[in-house]
């Protein structure tokens, strides 16, 4: 019998809000699945769509992109720029056939430790349900070699 599927999830978050929210989930000892790997960025404005593609190339079954709520950006309006990019890239990914459950976007403030824990649980559950991103994995396999470090 094969092992149950455990998805690989990569989260790109800004250090001021969502990263701090994830820390708060920790200090509050909230529990969530261990599938998520967090990449810390100074601001959502720094989160390039390329990161999402590279996470998928590394076999991620799901990606989360998250930062400060509109109006809360430490850099005043980095997240407003990010929101426009996300709108466009999200639509592009879906048009290319990447299911919307696989790439999610959220606002999580430094006070929303609970929202972070719940969202990670929810996303992990969603992706467990729809299974591994086999179509993408097939493309990775076709490249023949793992990408160089």
């Amino acid at each position: 019998m094969s092992e149950p599927f455990e998805p690989k999830i990569v989260a790109f978050v800004c250090t001021y809000c969502t990263y701090a929210g994830a820390d708060l989930a920790g200090t509050s000892r909230l529990k969530y699945p261990s599938n998520v790997r967090i990449v810390r960025l100074p601001c959502t404005g720094r989160i390039s769509p390329m990161f999402i593609l590279k996470a998928l190339q590394k076999g991620a079954d799901g990606v989360l992109v998250s930062g400060c709520h509109p109006g809360d950006c430490h850099f005043d309006h980095g997240n407003y720029h990010a929101r426009r990019r996300w709108t466009v890239f999200n639509s592009l990914l879906q048009f290319a056939g990447v299911p919307e459950e696989r790439v999610r976007f959220s606002w999580i403030s430094a006070a929303e430790g609970r929202k972070f824990a719940e969202l990670i649980s929810e996303i992990t559950e969603d992706i467990r349900r729809i299974g591994p991103f086999e179509q993408y994995h097939a493309l990775i396999a076709e490249t023949g070699s793992p990408a160089p470090l």
Binding site: Y80, R83, R84, W86, T87, E100, F105
Partner: peptide, 16 residues
Amino acid sequence: PALASFRKDDPETFIL
């Protein structure tokens, strides 16, 4: 440019 500007009330229905 659309991606170097923004409005505070840009739509964001897809953001959780």
